[in-house]
């Protein structure tokens, strides 16, 4: 159980795709714009279901968030050459599958700093390569793969909707907050998430 008050001591329970739960500090979680939009002001009743991502991925993402809690506010992409030793180790110890999962989770949670660093890292894979080498690196997808990607996007949109609905339920239960602003907040969040993920699916 968590409280709506946002201080660094507050812990939130996160639920992964395996159904496992684990704690994340409020300060770390606040780096996620998705979380901020859904739960920051109203709190969460029970574990927050990020059930599209496995425990290892979520832990990795929040490990990064915990580490960068005290870093200055994010101000646009940072050059990969400026990364600290810790950051470099963080990226280097991931295999490709984990890296892709982390990007997807970070993108869903809308953690700007981590997503931006991951993107910069991919960009570096292509730097200094000619067209033929680039084709080899980025492995252009087949039609089947693109179809599968679209299905995943649709599934994520549905998951986002589910999370928003949970936030809405929580809001309804929260008696201390004024009714109208919460309702508006929930509705706005729900609309925003639905729009975001529907737009991905359409693309």
């Amino acid at each position: 159980m968590t409280s709506p008050a946002s201080s660094s001591e507050v812990k939130y329970l996160i639920e992964s795709s395996e159904g496992n739960t684990f704690d994340v500090s409020g300060a770390a979680l606040r780096q996620s714009n998705t979380f901020n939009a859904m739960f920051l002001n109203i709190g969460a009743d029970g574990p927050i279901p990020f059930t599209d991502y496995n425990e290892a991925t979520l832990k990795k993402v929040f490990e990064y968030c915990e580490h960068s809690v005290n870093e200055e506010n994010y101000s646009g992409p940072k050059h990969q050459d400026d990364l600290s030793k810790w950051d470099l180790n963080f990226f280097n110890e991931m295999d490709q599958k984990m890296f892709i999962d982390v990007i997807n989770a970070s993108n869903f949670l809308d953690i700007e700093r981590l997503t931006s660093y991951c993107c910069e890292r991919i960009a570096r894979m292509l730097r200094g390569k000619n067209t033929q080498e680039m084709i080899k690196v980025i492995t252009l997808p087949t039609a089947e793969e693109l179809e599968a990607k679209q299905k995943v996007e649709e599934k994520k949109a549905a998951a986002a909707k589910k999370v928003a609905e949970k936030a809405a339920e929580t809001a309804e239960k929260t008696e201390t907050l004024e009714e109208l602003p919460v309702q508006q907040l929930v509705q706005t969040t729900r609309n925003k998430l639905t729009r975001k993920y529907l737009s991905f699916s359409n693309e």
């Binding site: 997807n104 997503t115 993107c119 991919i122 960009a123 980025i138 997808p141 693109l146």
Partner: peptide, 19 residues
Amino acid sequence: NFPLFLLPDNVILSVFRSM
């Protein structure tokens, strides 16, 4: 090898913007 185009579209766009 990296399956860039299997990532979400906004991530692909961010990768391009980093180049």
